[in-house]
């Protein structure tokens, strides 16, 4: 079976929602079991007392990337059919900065706040309520942001194309960087005073 299965028509579209539930379940389980339902555990990455976010995030990204590259190489999957978010230069950076500020205040991101809700964290419920309000505010004020939102679209460009590198070289460097960061994180954790949470 050559993937991606649904766009290739291997699995009919009617199964879409069932698959969404199952994959979401795996996502939620992995997040919660790693400790992403606790905002103070998440924030440990920024203060250096618990690098769980860094470890889980980069391990996951590298695992999925490696899987996609090998499956594409073996011909089990057509990686060129995968959806790539278009890169709007200004919008992506501004959005990222605003989200970072929200991260520092709220201690969650949308995915982890749903996990927090699942185990009864009231702060996660407030965070999610904030999400709804934020999206509503953005939509209502959209005419104000429209210019920036749509400016400088580079399309579904890959990072190694921007850097003028070969995909394989970039992927290799990313893996090495991730392993290096995991090593460094363990080092920092030993130095920083533990925070009880």
């Amino acid at each position: 079976m050559v993937g991606p299965l649904i766009p290739m028509g291997v699995i009919p579209e009617t199964w879409n929602n069932v698959i969404a539930l199952l994959l979401g379940g795996g996502f939620g389980f992995a997040l919660e079991a790693s400790g992403f339902s606790s905002s103070r555990k998440i924030m440990g990455t920024f203060f250096g007392y618990d690098f769980v976010v860094l470890r889980v995030f980069f391990t996951a990204a590298v695992t999925a990337m490696t899987g996609i590259l090998y499956f594409d190489y073996m011909g089990w999957m057509d990686a060129s059919m995968l959806y790539i978010n278009p890169y709007y230069v200004m919008s992506a950076i501004v959005g990222g900065i605003i989200m970072g500020m929200g991260f520092a205040l709220g201690g969650f991101c949308p995915g982890t706040s749903f996990c927090g809700i699942a185990i009864g964290k009231i702060d996660a419920m407030f965070f999610t309520a904030g999400l709804f309000i934020g999206v509503f505010i953005f939509s209502e004020l959209y005419p104000l942001f429209e210019g920036m939102y749509n400016s400088r679209n580079l399309g579904g460009v890959k990072i190694y194309e921007l850097l003028g590198m070969r995909e394989t070289v970039f992927a290799f460097l990313l893996i090495v960087a991730a392993v290096g960061m995991f090593y460094g994180a363990g080092f920092v954790e030993k130095k920083v005073r533990k925070v009880e949470y």
Binding site: F27, S39, N85, P86, Y88, S91, A92, V94, G95, G96, I97, I98, M99, G100, M101, G102, F103, A104, L105, G106, G107, F108, C109, P110, G111, T112, S113, D123, A124, F126, F127, T128, A129, G130, L131, F132, I133, G134, V135, F136, I137, F138, S139, F145, M148, Y149
Partner: peptide, 22 residues
């Protein structure tokens, strides 16, 4: 703080066309 953080995250995720996961 959680409410304010969520609000900012909501706005930011629309600008960036996705959040930390997406």
């Amino acid at each position: 703080a959680a409410l304010a953080g969520g609000l900012l995250f909501g706005i930011g995720s629309q600008f960036a066309r996705g959040c930390t996961s997406g």
